[in-house]
Structures are given as structure tokens and as C-alpha cells.
Design a protein around this nucleic acid. Sequence first.
DNA 1: TTTCATTTGTGAACATTTTAACAAACTTGA
DNA 2: TCAAGTTTGTTAAAATGTTCACAAATGAAA
Lengths: 213, 213
Amino acid sequence: MKRKPSEVPHISIERLILYRRCLLKLSCSEVFHVSSAVLGRITNVKPANIRKDLSYVGEYGKPGYGYEIDKLLAVIEKIIGINKLQRVIVVGVGNIGEALLCYQDWAARGFEIAGAFDKDRRKMGRVINGIEVRGDSEVLPFVKKEGIEIAILATPTEITQSKVNELAHGGMRGFYVFSPIVIDVPGGCYVENIDMISPLEFLVYRLKNKISK
Amino acid sequence: MKRKPSEVPHISIERLILYRRCLLKLSCSEVFHVSSAVLGRITNVKPANIRKDLSYVGEYGKPGYGYEIDKLLAVIEKIIGINKLQRVIVVGVGNIGEALLCYQDWAARGFEIAGAFDKDRRKMGRVINGIEVRGDSEVLPFVKKEGIEIAILATPTEITQSKVNELAHGGMRGFYVFSPIVIDVPGGCYVENIDMISPLEFLVYRLKNKISK
DNA sequence: TTTCATTTGTGAACATTTTAACAAACTTGA
DNA sequence: TCAAGTTTGTTAAAATGTTCACAAATGAAA
Ligand SMILES: NC(=O)c1ccc[n+]([C@@H]2O[C@H](COP(=O)([O-])OP(=O)(O)OC[C@H]3O[C@@H](n4cnc5c(N)ncnc54)[C@H](O)[C@@H]3O)[C@@H](O)[C@H]2O)c1
Ligand SMILES: NC(=O)c1ccc[n+]([C@@H]2O[C@H](COP(=O)([O-])OP(=O)(O)OC[C@H]3O[C@@H](n4cnc5c(N)ncnc54)[C@H](O)[C@@H]3O)[C@@H](O)[C@H]2O)c1
């Protein structure tokens, strides 16, 4: 029941991303194929659910054998669109921004931090993990020149929305935002938001009510 | 249609957490009540959905008027279990751990970082944002003495699972884990996991396929 | 080659979640 | 006090997501 990528349920895409993460690890070992049962044990997803997710993107498994890991990885990465390197920028090099610059696995996940920007003069010019922090005013020329479409925002909550507006106006299309607020973007732009604290609040709820998920 | 808390759909709980975040901001302004229509505009959730979520936890709205913000906040916080201060520890004071210690809004969200632990001698003894970093070996006595039930883990991916095992064995019940791996916990323990990179991968997919959510 | 044990892909049943619609309840202002 | 306007809580229908169960396909062993 192969569908066009845009018709794959969002929730299946989210699981595909999870499968990929686990497959990447498997592919470093001496295993070359994996069954939905085994992948299910690794990911905590029911095998039938995995097979259905994978059926949306084509038929890549062999009965009695399972899925070839490398082939499956390639297919998932193609569907998600991370089969080629994604170059992104980081705006706001504070606590979170600096942690992101120091993250070691960007390349393994298919990303490259092409540039980092902060308006604080004390941060400008610093080189963190090989990435130079530039002045905030350089961001628009930079992304235009480098053809960057995605920005990660780790700016103070109060200024994040206006920063998004400014970047969207300058042609930025995707925003990954760490501020715990609901962000508006103009048409043709897309935003993903994480609130790093919400899952902790959910954990408190689960603990209190003994909910195992 | 009031249910026991444990029967409120998980997805409604997640939205309650979102509502709370927005209500907290509203409560700082001069507004005292809010309708599902207005809250819907703020949160990007359809009003009917909001009313249904709230109906699971009781009837707190007045027709023709809306919901009293303070009352609603109290109810949501009671349901989630964050009506009293939650004391947690941070294990692993690297990039993420340090960012967490520096986060300014813990108190506003109902949390307190009661302690921080790292095994690196260079970090031990440092005081970050008023929180002393202790040696890793002190963690079990500390949590026993202080009655801490929840740990935030920002340790290197390779050691996170074993750290969870150790803490679970020592009586820790809830784990909030930043390593991008699936974590196993013994019965009676609960884990929430975030992979800070996955949402970015999802953003790439949405951008490629023009999916507005 | 044949048999046996696996495992896929999928249709159908089941479960959950969202949405629309509206009577009833409340506020406001005349 | 009453009428007009607003907004809730709830029902039922629609939409979406999960799980089951099994025929068909394949690999592996004899
Ligand atoms: N630190 C955490 O653990 C944590 C946890 C949850 C959420 N958050 C959220 O993440 C966001 C970032 O948090 P943080 O702790 O890294 O903040 P931070 O204050 O440490 O860093 C913000 C950085 O943005 C820079 N900045 C300010 N205005 C700018 C501009 N116009 N252009 C470019 N850079 C600018 C500042 O100079 C600073 O370096 C905040 O919205 C915060 O609420 C952080
Ligand atoms: N940095 C990021 O932006 C980022 C992004 C995505 C995911 N993550 C994940 O978050 C986790 C933490 O990342 P990080 O960048 O903060 O790592 P980090 O290496 O900067 O910090 C890890 C800290 O844990 C300490 N540690 C090691 N063993 C310990 C032990 N047994 N007990 C206590 N402390 C111990 C180390 O001394 C170090 O200070 C990793 O799993 C990483 O993959 C980080």
C-alpha cells in the first residue's frame, strides 16, 4: 500500500526517524539484516506497527529474512529528506546554543552547523568546536550566500518570535525553536518547537499515576 | 464526563501541559478569564478540542464567560502533580547539564534542582547558578537523604543506560534522559526520553514535502 | 529438491482522537 | 427584569491510528 511521501502519516514518519536512529547503531555492528520482531524489541514498537509503517514507504523486506539494514536506512533517509547533508545555522550561542555547537554527532545524523550567530560582542569571534561565532548582523547575508534554509533558534524567549519574523523575511524557511512558546510563521515557512521541560512535567504525571505508557 | 486522572488520555495530558504554560503567561497580565476560543488561538489547538480536554478533568468553565485562569491553572497543576514543588537532580554536568543548571525558569515551572553530580574531578566543587556540583559517588546517599525521586540524565550516551540501572537500584523512580537511545527501566520506574535532534529531522521532512501540520 | 521454520505485507477489526453541532447556562447592558 | 449575545459541556459522527491474524513468500537445513 505504497503512498506518496506526503501521504505517509506523520506519526509513522516520527517512528521512521526512531527506526533510523536504531538502525544506524545496528549498522555499525556485524548484523546485516533485521526483522520487525527484533527492531520492535529495540525500539519498543510492536512489530505489526513497524511493518505497517514500512509498508507505507514501499516493500523492502523479505519474508523469512527481514529487512536489509543498509537498504532500509537509505530508503528512510530518502523519505525524510536527510539523504544529503543538511546545512543549518544556530542563532543564539548561550547555554543551549553552545551545547548544540559542541554536539559531536551532527555529521552522523546528516547535519552540519554551517554558522553560528550571537549579538553579544563577547561571544562574537569565539570559535567553538571549530565553528566561528559571528555577529548577529551577518546572518542574513550569510544564509543568502550559503543557501541555508533552516535555522536553530536558541535565543532568549522574549526575542525569539521577532527573530523568527526577521529571518523569515530574509528567506529562511525552517525554524527549530528551543523557546517554550508557540511560534507563528508566515505561509511557506515551517516551525518545530521543543519545550525541554514539558516531558519532565509529563514524567511527574506518570510517576504520580503509575502510567507505564 | 469526569474521569479518574489515570483515565485521562495521554494526549490530553500533553495538551494540558501546553495550556498551563500559556496560562502561566496570561496570569501575569491583567486578564482573569479566558475562553476556549482565545486559548485556542494562543495554543494552536481547536477550541472544541480544548473543551473536551478540560471536560476530562472536571467542569471549571462558565458558559458565556470562559475559564477563570487561576482556578484552571490550579486544577491542571493538581492533575499533573506539579501543584507542589518538584525537587530533581541533574546527573552529568556537561554541555546539556550545565545549560539545565543555568535555566532560569525552573521555579516558575514548579521545579527545583536540588543537586548536580558529575564524575569529572574538574567539575566537582564548582558552583553553577548557585548549585554545587558534587562527586558522582555522593548521588545515592544524597537522594536517599533528600527523598528525591526524579533524575535528569545528561551523561554520555554510552554510559546512560548503566547509570539509570544504578540509580534505579538505589531507589530512583523517574528518569528524564537526554541521550538519544531507548532506555529500559525496571517495573515501578518510569522514563521520559528526548532526542533533541529528531524534531529537526522531522522539520526537514516537512520542509521537503510542504507539510504545514 | 523438499520440508520446515520464519517473517513479510495487508485486510479487517478494534481503539483512540478529533471535529462539528447544539441545547443549556451564563453574562451583560438596557 | 429581560433580551441579546456568548460560551460551555456533551453527543454523535468522522477521521486517524493500532493490532490481529493469516496467506504468501522466502531462507535454511536435510
Ligand atoms: N538552558 C536551558 O536548559 C533551557 C531549558 C529549557 C528551555 N530553554 C530555552 O531555550 C532558549 C535559550 O536558552 P539559553 O539558556 O540558551 O539562553 P541564554 O540566555 O543562555 O542564551 C541566549 C543567547 O542568545 C543571544 N541573543 C540575544 N539576542 C540575540 C539576537 N537578537 N540575535 C542573536 N543572539 C541573541 C544572547 O547573547 C545569548 O548568548 C530560551 O528560550 C530558554 O527558555 C533553555
Ligand atoms: N550537546 C547537545 O547539544 C546534545 C544534543 C543532542 C543530544 N545530546 C545528548 O545529551 C547527552 C549529554 O550530552 P552533552 O553534550 O551534555 O555531553 P557532555 O559530554 O558534554 O557531558 C557529559 C557529562 O557527563 C559526565 N559524566 C560522565 N560519566 C559520568 C558518570 N558516571 N556520572 C556522572 N557524570 C558523568 C561527564 O563528566 C560530562 O561532564 C548525550 O547523550 C548526548 O548525546 C546532546
